[in-house]
Design a binder for these strands. Structure first.
Lengths: 351, 351
DNA sequence: CCCTATATACTCTAAGCGAGTATATAGAAT
DNA sequence: ATTCTATATACTCGCTTAGAGTATATAGGG
């Protein structure tokens, strides 16, 4: 998460010297939601598991598997999450890690003190799309349907130049409150950095920052749904990816962000792979997640050189060319070094 | 956070096909605690801000500033945290970021369904120890008092070879449940990797993993306080750092972990520095956090080369040698590139 | 039998990093 | 005043590795 730019905030003024105990009663009226962004790669497409939400004002929106945390039933947060996911989709999660806890969104639609407030704890789970023994509910959907501007596999997505860039630049020009103006970085600069405009490099790890910016600018459907004034000011708000219910798209953005970052320094790709795979399949999986194409020869050298894989001795035929050696993940690397990820060669800049 | 090794867990069995809504009532009986690990560097010593807790069975233990999240009063989690910190210490936080949300500790001391369960959201705040305008309560304490095994500034801490290594190895030998045995990595290997034993490299970013292991092995005071059986089996449990109340030491471990990791890839050291500083002071601050000594010439070259700092034109005299140029943080780097951290040259291995 | 797509192997080059050496300038000690 | 010492600053060297290019082997399809 890149919180640097938003880290410095003035604290909210508060009545002084209240003791922690005095507030316990009120604090209890907070529900805790567990949300799972379950990620896989199917046919070179990165996908997330979603279930269909109820129809609302903007139509049926997708939701991530989720449920409330109940400490009486669930010993741990992660245990509760696994239970909910299993109940709602039939899936038994493998690898899972906590992402972030959100609390400050969606308030605008609710009366300030009527509806119970909900804190969302987001989780990232990695699994194989194939071999899901018994998926009873939900569908795998490409994560680029929710974030089309993140898909750089066929070059720079046109939606950036056509829809996003002009509107964000207009938004950056708009008069802003003096509070925001005194922020260390001006809006126009934030826009350029976030979306790699005006010759700035595209940073594939700014997924969350980009979505937050679109939300803040009122360009995400969710901003309109939540009743943000910034959204009302657009007369021609374009469709920028599929929206999701509540703050689930934000959680998915966080999940993509984390996946892209982590794949580079920890061997987590293998959670997405079958037990045996070719190096080409491995590369395609990494590319599905990170975007641009990697240099094949270097990719192979780096992966093998890092001791991440070992040949099984078998080959996979019918690959369209010379039969490919099959490899498996060397779990022993975890014992040998501060286990590395898939070092990726920086692709040629495509801006 | 390194969750790889613990990520694969069997999900808790649950009654099937409960809908999220059905549990809302019960889920509400969860309190949310906001906890701040406030970090600074004072006289080359990394310090955290603690307040003194009440006396309990093992004496007065330190606590981090904390308080419950009350959504009616606080618009955001971070806002609530800032308010509590200000109330309890008089400090106005600058940089702050969320760390992790904990829920699965301390249950053993409580009756399973009587006391309200608490979920702790940990935050990391970075600030300058000096120039704290109006610290009304609390003291700055070296974080190595809580984690003496993390202090490698004067070589390998003796506490590892004398106290930790023999006991953890004994613990690794002990018969373990078949559930733990089937875990992908055996205990003995986890111990070696965690603490850099038997010639393995010391990884300064495994702070949390190490504390968790000591807790699991029953070697942390908190494990005894929480009534863990693993703690009762030691007849000569040594004092391994100062304990803290509740799970605060775990949160502090997470904070140290994050600080050490982040300082390398984001320019967060400067949150700990005064506006103007010499490169030597900057290096000492980095070393206070990361531990071992860095190569001075390379450090300077990397810091200046990355465009992180610019000379103010002034010099600082009375440094004991040639007067040192004063530098300031170049905030513009944030506009130029995916702003880097302080690239550190790996120090000569000291194992 | 040729074409093509893939797999696999080898080589070259530039950049960066770890590490060493040398010189300048202040305060402190004599 | 001179010497010593700690710091600051500048320059150099060599190894590793990442990025990129070229060449060869083996399958299926027309």
């Amino acid at each position: 998460m890149n919180m640097e730019l938003s880290g410095r905030r003035k604290p909210t003024p508060e009545p002084s010297h209240r003791t922690p105990e005095a507030d316990t009663e009120q604090a209890l009226s907070v529900g805790i939601g567990l949300n799972a962004a379950i990620v896989a790669v199917a046919e070179n497409e990165p996908v997330a598991l979603v279930v269909r939400g109820d129809a609302d004002s903007i139509g049926a929106t997708d939701i991530l598997p989720f449920g409330p945390f109940n400490p009486v039933e669930h010993r741990t947060l992660e245990g509760g999450l696994r239970a909910w996911v299993h109940d709602q989709t039939g899936l038994e999660l493998g690898y899972a890690e906590q992402l972030y806890t959100f609390a400050d969104r969606g308030r605008h639609t609710e009366p300030a003190d009527a509806t119970p407030h909900v804190v969302s704890i987001g989780y990232l789970a990695l699994t194989q799309a194939m071999g899901h023994h018994g998926l009873t509910n939900g569908v795998w959907r490409s994560w680029y349907q929710y974030f089309p501007w993140e898909d750089w596999r066929r070059g720079r997505p046109e939606i950036i130049a056509h829809e996003i860039e002009p509107r964000l630049k207009a938004w950056a020009e708009k008069p802003t409150s003096h509070k925001a103006a005194q922020s260390s970085i001006a809006r126009a600069d934030r826009v350029r950095i976030c979306f790699g405009l005006d010759g700035m490099a595209w940073d594939e790890e700014k997924v969350l920052e980009r979505f937050e910016m679109l939300y803040e600018a009122g360009l995400a459907d969710e901003a309109a749904r939540d009743g943000h004034s910034s959204a009302r000011e657009w007369t021609d708000r374009p469709k920028l990816g599929l929206p999701m219910q509540s703050d689930h798209r934000r959680i998915l953005a966080t999940a993509i962000n984390r996946t892209r970052a982590k794949i580079k320094y920890r061997p987590v790709v293998f959670e997405l792979m079958p037990d045996e795979f070719t190096l080409y399949e491995l590369q395609k999986t990494v590319e599905a997640i990170l975007g641009p194409h990697l240099h094949k020869q270097n990719f192979r050298r780096l992966v093998e050189g890092a001791g991440l894989v070992e040949p099984t001795g078998e080959v996979k035929t019918r690959t369209g060319g010379r039969p490919a050696k099959l490899f498996r993940f060397r779990r022993e690397v975890l014992l040998e070094r501060p286990a590395p990820g898939v070092r990726v060669s920086a692709p040629p800049s495509r801006n």
